[in-house]
Simulated assay, not measured.
Amino acid sequence: MSLVDELVPSRYAVQVGDVEVMVISDGVLPITASTMATNAAPAELSAWLKDMYLPPEITDWPLNVAVVRSGDRVILVDSGLGSEFPGFPRAGQLAMRLDAAGVDPASVTDVVLTHLHMDHIGGLLVDGLRGRLRTDLRVHLAAAEADFWEAPDFSRTVMPAPIPDVLRSTATKFLDLYRGQLRPFETEYEVAPGVLIRRTGGHTPGHSIVRVESRGEALTFAGDAVFQPGFENPNWQNGFEHDPEESTRVRFRLLKELAATGEQLVATHLPFPSLCHVAEAGNAFRFVPTNWDY
């Protein structure tokens, strides 16, 4: 089977005014289900998992990245897990799937990173991708994010034991390799016409989202600001959140804003292609999938 003949779709393109956004699946990785709601009562989490037809102990976590084309700029938003983690063989598919989608890595002018967790930066460390990127590539991330990883604090996270050390070493390696190409920003930065990156904090101190707006249409790539349980249970905290209370505030604000504007949402760990709208439902929200446009 050729790369373009994968039986399960791995890319989906949507037009936002004059800007093209292609969501690409980097694959899935297994995650302990309890990590998705560390402050939830076990019975409530079990009931939610059952209602969603998800396994009770270990569930697959989707990994979505995006390629955004605006004018003469080709922007890669996050890069997936990469292939340096042999325990996750179904993730790290980005290099292959960029080829399948006809996206030449040498055409990428900018990379935007929502944050420096390994499942967002690992793809940029893989020889199959890193060696094919242009030498004048610009890598945009919040200055607070780069600063945080100089001496990261995991005291408020609830992760499986080996993960913090792997996150730390991966971020250190990334910063060492790409430091000369970093373009840090403080609060927000327009990467290309209609493509704005904005720091939210919460999940990590420099966590950021990307908003695409053109000709009255808009789409937000929310990174890890919202996870699958976060619509119905926005107060549930994820074990990877470095500031759980601030993450909750960020999630509420973002979902309320998206429900008010009606614009589309894409997020890293929502089921591919994750394209949806947000509706308010009392004190919580509803995930409203967008019909695929053929």
Rank of each mutant, 00 (worst) to 15 (best):
S214F: 03
A143P: 07
G206N: 05
L196Y: 03
L141M: 12
G128W: 02
V77G: 01
R97T: 09
G131L: 12
H115S: 15
G180C: 12
G206R: 01
G27I: 02
N233S: 15
A41P: 08
R156G: 11
F221P: 00
V226M: 02
G82T: 13
G122S: 14
W48C: 13
F231H: 09
I75S: 07
A95Y: 04
T204M: 06
L98P: 08
H115L: 08
T248C: 12
V4G: 07
A161P: 12
F174D: 05
R134S: 14
G123E: 07
V4Q: 10
A171K: 00
V68W: 00
L258H: 02
V65T: 04
T109K: 04
V16Q: 06
E217W: 03
A40N: 13
V21M: 08
V195N: 03
P234G: 14
E263P: 01
E188S: 15
F85D: 14
A267T: 00
A143S: 15
V266I: 01
D136N: 13
S79M: 04
V210Y: 01
H115R: 07
L265D: 03
R215Y: 07
D119Y: 00
A144Y: 01
V103S: 09
P9V: 11
F154A: 05
L7W: 02
L113Y: 00
V14S: 10
F240S: 15
F221C: 01
P160L: 09
E213N: 04
I24N: 00
D26M: 03
D99L: 12
L129Y: 04
L129K: 12
R251N: 05
R73A: 13
F227H: 00
R132K: 15
G262R: 10
K256E: 13
D165C: 09
H120A: 14
V158D: 08
H115M: 09
L49S: 13
G282L: 11
G80M: 05
L175Q: 03
Q181H: 14
V112F: 06
